[in-house]
Design a protein around this nucleic acid. Structure first.
Lengths: 217, 217, 217, 217
DNA sequence: AATGAATGAGCATTCATTCAT
DNA sequence: CATGAATGAATGCTCATTCAT
């Protein structure tokens, strides 16, 4: 009698649903949301077209589901990455690295979240992406904490700073995703530079006030 | 015999073409690129459907044309805004303000450039947006100049810094475009804060090195 | 331990089958044959979708079964209603009343037999509704008997008369079924009037031949 | 050289629309409304599928349009057939003959109006078939006039009588339409018999009161 | 140049039916 | 017998684009 292994992991309870989601990520990434055919996704998942509609209301629901479920995973990873770090500077760096690490390890998903999701009118216009706000909220909290601790400047609006930081990461992400030669891009280094900019700014430290007196002989 | 007035201003050489472009901006902004019907644009421009195809290859070409032509205007405005400013800091501030000023004065166009343009698979994937690079190039040059002049830190990659800065502006732009209550957002202030962050960073200035406790002998 | 009552009545030998038929009548009547989903019927009958196919070949077979089985009941009722009546006039009146009584007491079934059944291409075009002919045959026999007995006019084709009578009843039935305010309609009175028309016709009796001779003094 | 008649009738102003209607009648009659494919109709009319939607909202609209427009023609023909006839009996006979004449001369249309139209949920349940009421109204008025003139019995409800008469005609029409061997059916004769029944009823005239047996002393 | 009627490719979605359990 | 998850065929309709006038 075949014993199931002492339930270490629950067996893929919903094999088909999972396969559909994964296939959809691939197809959306490859062909774009609008051009993706439901039947392509079904083929990719090795199910019948109609099966998709047992699990998802329609094609767009599938896209939004990818966002919801994958963001949840990403949020968990982010929390794990920041765990134990208290210094805002450390947390900021870990945040940026986690963002880019996710990107590198799941490029198709990244493509979907970065590009395709925005093709959904409903997502961009009507949907309130709670998970995205949680994601940003982690950064915003980090800034507020840093301000409270006196480590970060009080005169900067945490809300603006958060969007600016996210925008910077996001733009670089998009460029990386779109870049044909992704190697040209060092994501880790990019993460560090962005953090560096946001921490210290672009300005060169004021040179030790060059002796004002002219070099007149 | 009707004489044309002594060409003081070039007569609106192509009235219809212009009307189509403007109508397209409005319709794309309102309904989104995918949902916008060519016949809606034609109606808005007061021309027949077929007329659009005398001036544009297809619907997407119309979108790309909006990008090309409007970016050209925007670039001219940007150049004008930076004219005479030499200090990288001044130029950076003027750049951000010009960016947001454009946004406020042409919200429908902003909506199209920020949101709808990205719905075009071709734009995002195949098109080489030369004009966008010019736009970014102005900022990149500014950084290189600042570095050369010793005003900006040399260890930062101008390319990364440019994308990061543009991403920050862009993200805030999107949020402003999508925000229902746009008043809640002060664009001028946002511009200054973003520049402030990129110049000085988020870190609070190191407190004037609290007397390190004297090297008491 | 729950004992079944000493089989006074044969236990509903096929509970499920019966429930499916009744549910189908309700669903067909409410949503129409075409719009009725098999799963709706299954839900109404509290069985699984697949169970329906253990008892019926397909959805249309279910409709035809309703016709067959219910017509059988209706025929029994009709026979009972005419039992003992020999005079063609009495039988005709009883026939019409039974027709409309059935209508009033089983409106959902009436809706199905009157309206939905005709939506079935197969029923209308290919099916030879034996039971319907039996139903009509009762009337036709009644006419032939009446003719044989000298009570009814010989020059009228019993076949045509039967269809005409049935058509009259049927049209009034449809109107009653479709009428929102069914009360406005008195079915018993309608039955009597239809019979009256078919018995005596619409013509006013010739006035007692007004004394042909002029009232000349 | 073929001269067009001095613009007596406007040339078929909308060739395509007309062709679509005629093709739809044929296809609906042949395959039934539900089974009729829009592309079949388009093919029959020698137009592209999409062209149908320039003239009709959808497939059902096409069906209802057939009803509306053809009933209008039929009503005109009916009026013409009754023109000049004043006696209710004459009018009744002409009505029945016109009904069946229409049937014989346009069997495909008859099939659609008799059978397919009833397959349209919307027609049967929601639509108020004004044209049908006009058609019936002609008969109802005829009865009222006859009653007013003392020719028809006052105690019969004109409304019921109308539906009964229409039902009789309609049922015979359906049988004729469905009959494979239509010849077996003599429509003119059927018309006359139905009228005969509705005028005089089925009852044999009371035999000249057989000498009630002599008043034997 | 301008028109707008006509075209027809293209695809998401439904739901009756099946069949492994 | 019963289940209900899975199947996949089948099609009405839209709308970007064309082209005869």
């Amino acid at each position: 009698m075949a014993l199931r292994p002492a339930a270490s992991e629950p067996p893929p309870r919903n094999d088909k649903r999972e396969r559909i989601v994964e296939a959809a990520i691939e197809v959306f990434a490859e062909k774009g949301f609008a051009a993706a055919r439901v039947s392509d996704i079904a083929k990719g998942a090795n199910v019948a077209d109609g099966t998709i509609y047992l699990y998802f209301r329609n094609k767009e629901d599938l896209l939004l589901t990818i966002f919801e479920e994958k963001m949840e995973e990403i949020l968990r990873d982010l929390d794990a990455a920041l765990e134990g770090l208290v210094d805002p500077v450390d947390r900021m760096r870990a945040y940026a690295r986690a963002h880019f690490h996710q990107l590198r390890t799941h490029p198709a998903l990244a493509q979907v979240l970065q590009i395709e999701l925005r093709q959904s009118t409903r997502f961009v216009r009507q949907y309130r992406p709670e998970r995205l706000w949680q994601y940003l909220g982690v950064f915003e909290a980090l800034i507020r904490d840093g301000q409270a601790a006196g480590r970060l400047r009080l005169e900067l609006d945490p809300f603006l700073a958060t969007w600016a930081f996210f925008g910077a990461l996001d733009e670089l992400s998009i460029q990386w995703v779109l870049a044909r030669k992704r190697d040209r891009f060092n994501l880790e280094q990019a993460a560090d530079q962005v953090v560096e900019i946001f921490l210290h700014g672009l300005l060169a430290p004021v040179p030790p006030s060059p002796p004002v007196s002219p070099e007149v002989p």
